[in-house]
């Protein structure tokens, strides 16, 4: 049995839904019970990979048989739900920040340990709710108002503190998330921002993307009665992570990883509303 980390980098808004919502938003995104952390179900990623696998025999051996033959044997690969690791949040400097919190980093670190790619970067505590940690003093997010450094995310004003630990996190994560792209690594380091868990959970509830969707009356340009709904999505640049476990049932580990690698070479579309361009993302296996 072998475990690897899986990163998802959203290039268009990502809507992995739960069906009908009961709250303010008609079509909310899926979230982890208890913590409210947005997730993309592992089954949904697996389904996309499976659908993109063109060879029937390989498909069955790696991903398991069709549901009609499900009793034959299981697939060789299992995926955990992918959990949000960085939420892009609008900023008054640097346009947006990649926001995370100690809770999200801890959850990720647990996965990383399972995938034996754990690393020793510490998760520094956030002293107060109105403080955020950035990788460097000249981070793109920081701007001066009356000689004081500030970070303004949505309508929250925070005091930035540079942290070497966060710099280490950025340096280790960037290549894993974006491949070897140095330009993106630099953007990432300038925009990584660690906020207090309470601030994060506020942002998770209020700073996701909400779009009004309407169904127009067939021939007129008017809204059909009752056909206005609000759909929630994780914004472009959201980053999620989870793990993939391979058990050599019908295919050995090297083969399975090779196939997943090939399937994730190109961008994939994940989640709902794909025919209007949602859920375009890159998946990186580490």
């Amino acid at each position: 049995m072998k475990t690897k980390l899986l990163f998802l980098h959203a290039l268009s808004p990502l809507h992995a839904g739960t069906g009908q919502g009961v709250g303010v938003i008609d079509l909310p995104i899926a979230r982890e019970k208890g913590t409210g952390i947005p997730i993309v179900p592992g089954s949904s990623i697996k389904g996309v990979l499976r659908a993109n696998c063109s060879e029937d025999d390989t498909k069955t051996r790696v991903f398991g048989p069709d549901t009609s033959n499900a009793s034959d044997h299981g697939g060789s690969v299992q995926l955990s739900d992918l959990r949000l690791l960085f939420l892009p949040v609008r900023s008054l400097a640097g346009t947006f920040a990649w926001v995370t919190s100690p809770l999200l980093l801890r959850r990720f670190q647990r996965d990383a340990v399972l995938a034996s790619s754990g690393f020793a970067a510490a998760i520094p505590p956030i002293p107060r709710e109105d403080v955020c940690l950035v990788a460097r003093r000249d981070a793109g997010l920081v701007f001066k108002q009356k000689e004081v450094d500030e970070v303004v995310l949505e309508d929250l004003k925070l005091t930035p503190q540079p942290s070497d630990d966060i710099k280490t996190w950025a340096a280790v994560l960037a290549p894993q998330i974006f491949g070897g792209d140095m330009a993106w690594a630099d953007l990432f380091t300038k925009r990584i921002c660690v906020v207090h868990d309470d601030v994060l959970s506020f942002l998770l509830e209020t700073a996701t993307e909400v779009t009004a969707r309407i169904q127009l009356d067939k021939d007129k340009k008017t809204v059909k009665h009752g056909a206005l709904w609000y759909e929630e999505a994780l914004p472009t640049e959201s980053i999620l992570a989870g793990i993939m476990v391979v058990q050599p049932i019908m295919a050995n580990e090297a083969e399975v990883f090779g196939i997943i690698q090939a399937l994730t070479n190109n961008p994939l579309q994940v989640g709902g509303s794909v025919t209007v361009g949602r859920g375009l993302c890159r998946i990186h296996m580490v």
Binding site: L92, A93, T95, F96, Q145, K146, V152
Partner: peptide, 11 residues
């Protein structure tokens, strides 16, 4: 008291 600073790439 916050004012817009176009030099820092605000959203």
């Amino acid at each position: 008291n916050i004012s817009l600073d176009v030099r820092v790439a605000p959203h």
